[in-house]
Design a protein around this nucleic acid. Sequence first.
RNA 1: GUGGCCAUGGUGAAGCGGUUAACACUUACGACUGUGACUCGUACAUUCGAGGGUUCGAUCCCCUCUGGCCACCCCA
Length: 416
Amino acid sequence: MSITAIKGFNDLLPSESGLWQFIEQTARQVFARYGFNEIRVPIVEKTELFCRSIGDTTDIVEKEMYTFTDKGGSSLTLRPEGTASVMRALIEHKLYALDSINKLYYMGPMFRHERPQKGRYRQFHQIGAEVTGAADPLIDAQVLLMVSRLFKELGLTEPSLQINSLGCPVCRPAYREALVAFLAQRQDALCEDCRRRQTTNPLRALDCKVPGCVEATKGAPAMLEHLCPECDLHFSAVQNYLAVAEVPFSLNPRMVRGLDYYTRTTFELVTGLLGSQSAVAAGGRYDGLVEQLGGPAVPGIGFALGVERVALLLGDRNFDGTPDLFIAVLGDAARTAGFHLMAGLQDQGFWVETDCEGKSLKSQMRRADKLKARYSIVLGDTELTAGSGSVKCMGDGSQQAVNLTVAAITEILTGG
RNA sequence: GUGGCCAUGGUGAAGCGGUUAACACUUACGACUGUGACUCGUACAUUCGAGGGUUCGAUCCCCUCUGGCCACCCCA
């Protein structure tokens, strides 16, 4: 058996790369309009970074990270998400000192050891953006506006925006207690997982899909009703700004996060078209994260989208271009002349193809057709002596005489 | 990590104990000796994910492994 790729690690083949480039390019264009600059951070970080940011007791850190010991004895990890690295870089290079507001975006592979499924792989790709330095709800709304515009530019209307507020260190502990007390009364109705999570992450019970849990948590206290005055004000301001910008959204009081660092505004773009992989993009505010990682008390908010999932939503689209001209050649002299002509036309910016296998004219024409070349030209002894030939339009089969010069052919290629 | 279903060429797939392993597409060459598309012809799986077992014989039955899909879990 020949060597294959690792389970959950996929090749992106030429037939799909056009779609990915479209997604990436659209993201870059949209982000630029909102003043974001790209940051490129390493794929491997010290394990501690993720433990401290994502949270020791989260599933990601507990059982999904690709962690290994390097030759120097340090524990390193293939990044499972992007925000931690970006914040690490922000602190390490004191970017917060250069400018009070930093707007950064990134794209690249992330790694989580999960069971592969459609839209979920062990190496997957995210495009994300982060804003640090501003706690104002206007920033929350701006990020949401940008996300919604990005999906619009991508041509997707399907994923819908859901928002929620998770409160802050002032109001969340009290809410958590209220919820734990509520759940404690309904112990018997809860599933095994939810009972286990009561001490680690009780909020998850709100998101549980087991029928018993759904039933048991029906009257559960909602975070939105336990927000402190500041958080409450912040959240209603976010909603007002969204209304001003005409960004459609719905409230999902049960939305929780798998990462510990989130505070206040959280959001998801969800779709019903990807089976259980319903989240296409997600993010939220993380006001304590930078400080938690040893930096100053800088607030932040960001999001990431799953490129594989967006690609699935966009489906099969043809992004392939076609050659402008195919030069068919007969004999060595023509081959050399054709090569010269090809080089000149390529310098003019045209996509030009020619035979490189010494094939018959028929085969060369077939290839021109298969490549969907717009025009073709045949070069043989007759053309070389005459210094002219005829260019054939592959669409309608018409031919027109032309001198064998870059200028003359350029005129036809641009004119037609 | 748990459970269910699945695995035949470059692709989509028939076959289901003994077959030349169908058919279609793709690809290559030719009919058309200097002009593609349509048409026609020819070629393309000693082999049925890998390894064992049962059998006179296994693509077909059994086991193990690997991979895929779906659901759970989790999440982008």
